[in-house]
């Protein structure tokens, strides 16, 4: 399973993020983004409106799609905080922190154990 499909199946992963939150994902050559609305839209390609850029390795993707959705933030956080061999996640904040906090990313980051 790819992460795009996993997100479509488990939109609750992004609970707490405000409408209009946008995250770009890059996995190898693949690029897509998610948009938070009434549900989660997964769209091919990058968005110029992204709040965050997330890059992850294919090994990290394999690990994440096998994770129960309730544990997703924690496993995602661990892959960022403590990369294991080929499995890694990189995060870059694009928008100012104040805007990100107002969109609910602070609480999500706490759930992920990153902040």
């Amino acid at each position: 399973m790819r992460l795009e499909e996993y997100f479509s199946k488990h939109p609750e992963i992004f609970n707490g993020l405000e409408r209009g939150a946008v995250i770009n994902y890059t996995i190898g050559e693949r690029k897509f983004h998610i948009v938070v609305g009434d549900d989660i839209q997964v769209v091919e390609g990058v968005s110029r409106e992204a709040d965050l850029e997330v890059k992850l390795s294919e090994a990290a993707e394999r690990k994440l799609v096998e994770t129960p959705p309730e544990e997703y933030p924690k496993v995602f956080g661990e892959l960022f905080l403590s990369p294991e061999g080929d499995a890694w996640v990189e995060i870059e904040l694009v928008k100012p922190m104040e805007e990100l906090l107002s969109k609910g990313y602070g609480e999500w980051a706490k759930r992920a154990g990153v902040m």
């Binding site: 960022f80 905080l81 995060i91 904040l93 100012p96 922190m97 980051a109 990153v114 902040m115």
Partner: peptide
């Protein structure tokens, strides 16, 4: 303490504002 350092790096660009 480790997480504080990592979080600081994440917010670094905003901090420089």
């Amino acid at each position: 303490e480790y997480k504080q350092a990592v979080a600081l790096a994440l917010a670094y660009r905003s901090m420089l504002e």
